[in-house]
Amino acid sequence: MNKEVFNKQAANVLVWLLLLAMPYWLPAIGGYIELGTRVVVLGLAAMALNFLLGYTGVLSFGHAAYFGLGAYGAGMTVRYLVPSTGLGLLVGTVVGAVAGAIIGPMIIRLRGVYFAMVTIAFAQVFYFIAFRWSTVTGGDDGLTGWTRQPLHLGFTTIDILHNPTAFYYLVFVVFAVAIAIMAWLLRSPFGRTLLAIRENERRARFLGIPVDQHIWISWTISCAFASLAGALYAYVNNFVDPRALYWTQSGDFVIMAVLGGMRSFWGPLIGAAIFVTLQDYVSSQTENWMSFVGLFFVLVVLFFPRGILGMIRRKVAS
């Protein structure tokens, strides 16, 4: 086993151990369990975007649409249909994935800024629907009057409403399954094909690879993971409002991916941890917290263009 493979495996083990023990070590350093839950959920959303951005080379500024659809799908299922946490997760994920699959063929032939702008446009359509359809979505006041429900497993019931540790581990299990599927896809021939498209799309076409079809599949998978993260985020807050669909939310996901390192698997999760922690701490000190986060982002882009994880890898390699 060479040094690079050993370092990668050691990093994977360290990340999983930190996530598994987060409810115990995070309060010891001044944090709280709900903060760790938000990091994991938004980390999943950023990694979903990175599936498209970092591994396919296509930039979307509209992933808030599918994040928000997942959130509304989960919240509206619990409020209007069946008070079931599991069913809400399933419906939210399916709604966002289907929306992504339908929109995908309309945009997959676009590239660069054109692709990014069209994804924003579709996201804003969903935002205005949620904002205006107040009789169903609650409009600007948000979807209220519902909460996440206890998990009934037959032999026992887990109270994820009043027990933040139990809810964290529910989120962790869902995150672990999603990340395992994502890693498997990226290591498969399909994932290697995405890397070929990212590195040189023209050459990939010459090799006979159906580029547009692969981008559409990558887009749909990315939207599905983002929707799953949105459904979990609805349960974190027991509330959904149109801001989950707004374009600035998409910008946050891009910032998280770039901060951590958008061409690395764990980079977006690290970026999400930095972003959420900074947001939580700085916003408690000043109303101008966005200025500080923006300045930090600019400094990282200028001095560490491969992100925080890229900088760490460089130090380890040297």
Rank of each mutant, 00 (worst) to 15 (best):
A121Y: 00
L170S: 04
V118W: 02
F275P: 01
A121H: 05
V39D: 00
I217S: 08
V298P: 10
N50D: 09
Y169F: 10
V118H: 01
A130G: 00
T137D: 14
G208F: 08
G43I: 07
Y235E: 14
L87M: 08
G138H: 07
G307P: 06
E201I: 09
M47K: 09
L35D: 01
T144D: 08
V293C: 05
L299T: 12
D212Q: 12
V136T: 12
A101I: 01
R306C: 03
A176R: 02
F225C: 00
I270H: 03
F6V: 05
T193F: 03
L153T: 03
Y235W: 12
L143A: 08
V40S: 00
S291F: 12
G294W: 06
F61L: 14
F115A: 10
V211E: 03
I274C: 03
L228V: 08
G271T: 01
A64E: 05
M106N: 08
I160D: 02
H63N: 15
I107E: 01
L232I: 06
F265Y: 10
Y127N: 04
A244K: 06
A45I: 04
A180N: 04
L17N: 07
F167A: 09
T144A: 11
F155S: 11
A101L: 11
T147K: 10
T277A: 14
I120N: 03
N288S: 15
G154C: 05
F122R: 02
A176K: 03
Y80D: 11
R306M: 09
R198P: 06
A229K: 01
A244F: 15
W219Y: 12
D241Y: 08
L153W: 10
A71P: 04
V98K: 07
M22V: 05
A11Y: 12
I129W: 04
D212W: 10
G57H: 09
V82E: 01
P23T: 01
W146I: 08
L302W: 12
L35R: 02
M311C: 13
D140I: 14
Y246V: 04
A196Y: 11
S284M: 12
P164H: 08
V211S: 03
I103H: 00
L161V: 14
R79H: 10
T135A: 15
R313N: 14
V177T: 01
G104L: 03
P189D: 06
A176L: 15
F239H: 14
D212C: 05
H214W: 10
K315S: 15
L35W: 11
A231M: 09
G260T: 06
F51T: 15
G154L: 06
S218G: 15
M1G: 11
A226P: 11
G310T: 09
A234M: 08
F296E: 02
V236Q: 13
M262F: 14
L186H: 09
R38F: 04
V13H: 08
W25H: 02
L69C: 05
G57I: 09
V258T: 08
A257H: 13
W25M: 02
R111I: 05
V82T: 10
V174H: 06
S283V: 04
Y281D: 09
T37R: 03
L17S: 11
S318A: 14
M256C: 01
N12S: 07
A97W: 01
I107P: 03
I217N: 12
T119Q: 15
F225S: 00
W133G: 06
V39K: 00
G142C: 12
V40N: 02
G271Q: 02
M76P: 05
W25N: 00
G294Q: 07
T147S: 10
N237A: 13
G261S: 13
